[in-house]
Design a protein around this nucleic acid. Structure first.
Length: 587
RNA sequence: GCGGUUGUAGCUCAGUGGAUAGAGCACCAGCCUCCGGAGCUGGGUGUCGCAGGUUCGACUCCUGCCAGCCGCGCCA
């Protein structure tokens, strides 16, 4: 158990002994390091509830806690803060205990849950771009985090593979190659095994088809018709669709592989096509469908709404279905497959209204079982102009190119700093790749997921400031110390006093890991882990500068500092691992 | 128009109703006989958008207003 949880329990016991709610016993590290290591603010809240003087309650709690052997100082301050200072041996012993625990004091969930994470995946034929970075990186961090905490996670890329874009591509290809057998309605196969288009062809065709459909009503109509026929199962279109899928998935696998992101399911909208008709029948049977302006909709207005809430369109007036329909069918499918406690949708915040409609419809029609549906919304990645850095006709920044640029920039930085010298080219390239990816991922994760941020590769790849490379640098420095320690035959001992300020501060930051993990998990917010990692790096750098390790002559102090460095390294590896950031051995 | 969201240091942003609102960047000054100086140590700025309210206590909760961004039935 973490020390914060331990202390919280202790203080909660004291509140309980006084006949007060245990919840008031929550302990955190002190906001006034000059006064204490830890603090509890519960006495003031308890005073409000019990209608008593806060200082008096605090005094009573302190009286109970005072006997504890680990405590050096327990006192009341200000309006009713309870300040706690541990004795130095206790502080050191706690650090040592954490070092020996493979989870570094991070509790496993007491009630593990089954969680589906939907990455709101890329659309087939559209090349992955910067916009896909966030769902990939944030979603991946969440799946690692949830697994670490003990939940059972099923991640689904959930490709956009079944809507109007498919119809547009079919029409576009027919325009170019009317001779292909897929377009002969009389024919039902067999069709060639060789794909008629490559993924690059698709990426080139899509924007043209989209532009055409946008400006020309009859083209749009043709695309709609083709989409409907595809969904109804026209063999030639299905065969063509399969080719599109195969080609696109090859490219996606390359991109996600480069990012180090993996999925349990490679499903998409098409996967529930056969479930649409039964779903509609059951909705009809439940009386949930209404006819509105020629479309069948589900009303999702709820009592107490203070805003307009448009209905969810389930069947369009032309008979086609929408992504709202496939989202509902997908919920049913997931409940049937794994009966999750939660389904998390890691999707752009601009789709908030859509998810609110879908979630309401799912609840109203009792489709979601026990699952709590959550939109894990994220902000946009903007260019220097503050506008989304998105796929538009013209300047498309493909994800693959982006990673290449990050690697290139990382290379430049390594040269600037004369780092990663005297290693084989292969190893050098590997270091640059890891530094570039760390820069990209950390920059993305360090921003609160709901805020937008400006994409600035030059800034992200810096080794100074709050960046991925800075964290890697701190980690690599510790690894370097251990290599040298091994050469000289030095080994880590137990963390023990006397402790300098820098050591004490480093230990206190180390204690925060469990809270950071818990909060990041509870709030689904990776940036809390980034904040922690950065605080740790700063505390370590300070320790590193003030406390010589290998040059220390006292063997006990040297062994203790080595142990503390080892603990810190383990923390970096744990947290960076959850963030999905790989660390090189040297750089 | 309705709804959502944001407004905190020169810039980019943190900030679980609690103590003296914090980081990074930028700027200035120190620190290399010492484990990797892309580091560390100091230096200082804030009408927390504005006005009310709740509270022992508000950047945090509530109401109104102002400004920006986003969304609002048959695209996904």
């Amino acid at each position: 158990m973490s020390i914060i949880a331990d202390l919280s329990q202790l203080v909660s016991d004291a509140f309980q002994e006084l006949g007060l709610d245990r919840g008031f016993g929550a302990v955190a590290t002190s906001r006034r390091p000059d006064l204490a290591h830890f603090q509890c603010n519960g006495a003031m809240a308890a005073a409000k509830q019990a209608r008593r003087a806060p200082r008096q309650i605090a005094e009573e709690v302190v009286a109970i806690l005072r006997a504890h052997p680990e405590f050096d100082v327990v006192e009341v301050a200000g309006p009713g803060f309870i300040n706690i200072k541990l004795t130095e041996p206790a502080l050191a012993a706690r650090a040592d205990e954490m070092r020996l625990d493979e989870r570094l004091g991070c509790e496993r969930s007491a009630a593990p849950e089954r969680v589906v994470i939907d990455f709101g995946g890329p659309n087939v034929a559209k090349a992955m771009h910067v916009g896909h970075l966030r769902s990939s990186v944030v979603g991946d961090c969440l799946q690692r985090l949830f697994r670490f905490v003990g939940d059972e996670v099923v991640s689904d890329i959930h490709m956009g593979d079944w809507g109007l874009p498919m119809g547009m591509l079919i029409v576009e290809l027919e325009r170019r190659r009317p001779d292909l057998p897929y377009f002969d309605a009389e024919l039902s196969g067999p069709y060639p095994e060789e794909p008629p288009v490559s993924v690059d062809d698709l990426a080139e065709m899509y924007p043209k088809a989209a532009a055409l459909a946008k400006e020309d009503e009859t083209e749009r109509e043709k695309a709609r018709l083709a989409t409907a026929q595809l969904q109804e199962g026209r063999p030639g279109y299905r065969a063509l669709w399969q080719h599109f899928m195969n080609e696109s998935m090859k490219a996606m696998k390359a991109d996600f592989g480069a990012l180090g992101v993996h999925f349990d399911w490679w499903l998409g909208e098409a996967a529930v096509n056969d479930a649409i008709a039964p779903l509609l029948a059951s909705l009809e049977a439940k009386g949930a469908l209404e006819l509105s302006q020629g479309a069948q909709v589900i009303t999702v207005v709820e009592e107490g709404d203070n805003k307009e809430m448009p209905p969810l369109i389930v069947v369009k007036s032309d008979g086609g279905v929408t992504y709202g329909t496939t989202d509902l069918a997908t919920i049913v499918d997931r409940v049937a497959r794994v009966d999750p406690h939660h389904i998390l949708y890691v999707v752009d915040k601009r789709q908030h209204l859509h998810f609110e409609q879908v979630f309401r419809a799912a609840r109203r029609c009792e489709l979601s079982g026990r699952a709590q549906l959550e939109h894990i919304a994220f902000g946009t990645v903007n260019g220097a102009d503050g506008k989304p850095f998105k796929t538009r006709e013209g300047g498309v920044m493909k994800l693959g190119d982006l990673i290449a640029r990050a690697t290139e920039q990382a290379n430049l930085r390594l040269e600037e700093g004369a780092l990663a010298k005297d290693v084989d080219q292969e190893i050098h390239d590997e270091i640059a790749r890891k530094v570039g990816l760390a820069a990209l991922k950390f920059a993305d994760l360090a921003n609160d997921r709901e805020s937008d941020y400006v994409f600035n590769l030059e800034k992200f790849t810096r080794f100074e400031g709050k960046t991925g490379p800075y964290l890697l640098y701190a980690t690599v420095r510790i690894k370097s110390i251990f290599r040298k320690a091994a050469e000289r035959g030095f080994e880590a001992g137990t963390v023990s006093g006397p402790l300098s300020d820098a050591e004490r501060k480093l230990i206190l930051v180390n204690f925060l890991i469990s809270s950071a993990v818990q909060r990041a998990h509870a709030e689904r917010r990776p940036h809390l882990l980034c904040d922690f990692a950065y605080d740790l790096a700063q505390a370590f750098s300070r320790f590193y500068n003030n406390c010589p390790i290998l040059a220390e002559e006292d063997p006990a102090i040297r062994a203790s500092r080595l142990a503390l460095a080892g603990l810190t390294l383990a923390q970096f590896e744990l947290v960076l691992g959850i963030l999905g950031i790989e660390t090189p051995e040297r750089m």
